[in-house]
Design a protein around this nucleic acid. Sequence first.
DNA 1: TTGTATGCGTTATCAG
DNA 2: CTGATAACGCATACAA
Lengths: 325, 325
Amino acid sequence: MPTIKDVAEKAGVTVTTVSRVLNNRGYISDATRKKVYKAMEEINYHPNELARSLYRGKSNLIGLIIPTVGHPFFGELAAFIEEYAYSQEYKVLLCNSQFDREKEKEYLEMLKRHQVDGIIMASHTIQVDQFSRVNLPIVTFDRQINEKIPYVSSDNFRGGELATNLLIEKGCKKIAHICGNLGLDLLANRRNEAFMATARRQGIEYYTVQTEINVFETNQYESLIRDLFIEHPDLDGIFASSDLMAASAVKICSDLNKKIPEEVRIIGYDDINVASLVTPQITTIKQPLAQMSALALDLLIKQMNKVKVPVENILPVQLIERETT
Amino acid sequence: MPTIKDVAEKAGVTVTTVSRVLNNRGYISDATRKKVYKAMEEINYHPNELARSLYRGKSNLIGLIIPTVGHPFFGELAAFIEEYAYSQEYKVLLCNSQFDREKEKEYLEMLKRHQVDGIIMASHTIQVDQFSRVNLPIVTFDRQINEKIPYVSSDNFRGGELATNLLIEKGCKKIAHICGNLGLDLLANRRNEAFMATARRQGIEYYTVQTEINVFETNQYESLIRDLFIEHPDLDGIFASSDLMAASAVKICSDLNKKIPEEVRIIGYDDINVASLVTPQITTIKQPLAQMSALALDLLIKQMNKVKVPVENILPVQLIERETT
DNA sequence: TTGTATGCGTTATCAG
DNA sequence: CTGATAACGCATACAA
């Protein structure tokens, strides 16, 4: 790899001059500027960002910690974040924590060692106190860590309300909410609160079923839903806390010969791309992922620049009616 | 951020000594070792990997260029690669090229500037000659760039054969292959070759439909398939070159009131997670993503260590029969 | 307009 | 067993 020194020699100037044309700093004659460019071209020079970062004390790297990019929701999230980050000159270091507490901690330290300028954290099995040791800009997705770390989420309570109300409006009499583990202290839990409050207010029979902590396994969704129908064969409405869970519900209903939406109505959450691709198309609550991603990064960058940002950042959700209701 | 210098002062030794305990090099008395560890603990020291990388001439970073991690296939691929990379002490810089030729080029240069130790390239709109300027270990997914750059793929021809044969065995008389743009010179094009050869050999009527170059848009799949059925209402078999395309096909058939698999049989490709989650579950050709990912990284690491590797690396595929055939 | 010297945080060489 | 110092590639203050 050629260095700035090689360029300098080739162009017959010193490294300072090369550095100057590289960064457009100070005065340089057009003649030398051309010489330098030519030399760079000839030896195919690319500045070493490691060295630059070291000097500047800024890496232009951000860390993204998610459970796994293999899950469509997080995959889409990661795509938005990377795209927006790139447009702001930031590069993304990808970390899949697999819902593993130890891995989350390790990643946090790894990112610190690699001098990332900030971290977007969307995986949350970790204990809150671990965050205090990371004195780096952080933005959190869907979880409130403490009074100081800003978080981005969509309006989970409103989403839960919209979903539950839709089921009830459509005539459901006995409904269930299938969601991730409620012990995780995620803001997504508000959906369940809204679900229960709404059902209670309307006098509708309701149940909540939650998954184990560290699992995206679709098998688990399926057995959970199967058991649910064994216990409550007359269930006629399901609010699934993700579109994938909703797809599982559709599958089980199909197995049990229950017609959708006539006998069972199903509503999902997130509005990932596949939600509108499968048959039947899944009614869902759309989270504004693109805006959430951009907002998260904006908040991160503002923190890097020492500007104060609001801690609470909640974006609106939207009901998207399709075929499962 | 505390530096090695701070640790040294705190412990009352020099940076050399601290560096020694950090890297377990040379002799150090237990007493000073303890002192140093204690100091590191107290000031919460983390070695600066930027500085280390600069000195060592090795960043332990790899670049991953894919069209978009928002597509389930590439999301799952990225998850496997990141997981395996992390186990080998490598970190992943995520690059979504969006099938954009310019972005691919920019990412390639960016990764070089950031001194990545190698690149895994799974996005291929770029011209072949661009690669010659990158003199870095590269491994390619599903595309043969030239005689020197190793590539990993699964047996596309065999996959095409398996899929086509299954349709024919099941009794299809008029079949179509829906695939990505064949002008892209991907190894995936072998599927189409196999499709045509197999259908021809068996004397079955067949058609090929391809998408535009830069698109993962499901809308496009749908209109393509819709048009296909308008032109050939008696089509009874579809070989889709991705599970998402297959899902689109299922949807259109459902719209047209064509029963699956009785009237139209559909087989997808990849076996992404959702393939077995949707209703009906999609019959597909499974690519061994986990092994392919690990292999790609192994090949990359070997190149870094200057060990020769085979250029052609083709893994077997597997037919997975489910409900759409 | 250009060059010299210094430091960013780390590791390795060579003394002691 | 431990310390002083150069070097990794780059950018800036200060000279010239």
